[in-house]
Design a protein around this nucleic acid. Sequence first.
DNA 1: CAGGATCCGCGCCGATACTG
DNA 2: CAGTATCGGCGCGGATCCTG
Lengths: 128, 128
Amino acid sequence: MKVSTQAAPRVSCPERAVLEHLTSRWGVLVLSALLEGGRRFGELRREISEVSEIAVSEKMLTQTLRTLERDGFVGRHARPVIPPHVDYDLTPLGEQAARQVRALAGWTEEHVPQVLAAREEYDARTPG
Amino acid sequence: MKVSTQAAPRVSCPERAVLEHLTSRWGVLVLSALLEGGRRFGELRREISEVSEIAVSEKMLTQTLRTLERDGFVGRHARPVIPPHVDYDLTPLGEQAARQVRALAGWTEEHVPQVLAAREEYDARTPG
DNA sequence: CAGGATCCGCGCCGATACTG
DNA sequence: CAGTATCGGCGCGGATCCTG
């Protein structure tokens, strides 16, 4: 049993930790998806796995959502029915954050070709 | 001996890899520093260690700079003198990237207090 | 001064099994 | 359906030593 669930690995300052949560592998995708509206756990999982071409494990999705919820970016709404329904959405703070993240992710996506070209040029020049 | 220097750990798609480079612990600080002008290796090291309150090892700074250089974000200019002088600066592409990263990092920094407050509220409500 | 090489511990994250 | 618990590999990154 661990004392702390998600304490401080190597990230000491809180700013770095928050940035890490926002730009984490699944964090980016979760925020992006939720920017288009609230989603249920399963929907989120399927949608993300579809976009990223790689399946997100339940564990990681849960962990990501918990972290973002704790930071105040994501709201969790469980409805006590059988079977369980849990909806997630962005808080006002989370929506601001998601837009920033989207801006960076969007820019990155657009410029991937340039980066790839730069790498080829670098690799062609460096070993020789 | 490793075959690949910095190949693909778990990041398959290139977009994720680039995002990882840009938002990596030291990547953010390097881009931020270089946004204010070119710097030498040692200056960069001292400046970053000062801002982050945690020293960056030579290894990690080198690795970060190499990765960003290969991606076409950072320019490296070595002058063949004794002792060696190496200047780093942002390429036009890197400057665009750095501004996106700064926007996100700046937003994060400003809202850290709100996040901390959200965490306290979460922690107070969750165990009970 | 700038960095290459190597060792190695710690924590991330995927896989698997189980529950309300 | 939406999680929780546990185990284990492996890669990130810090420490240290060495070089042009």
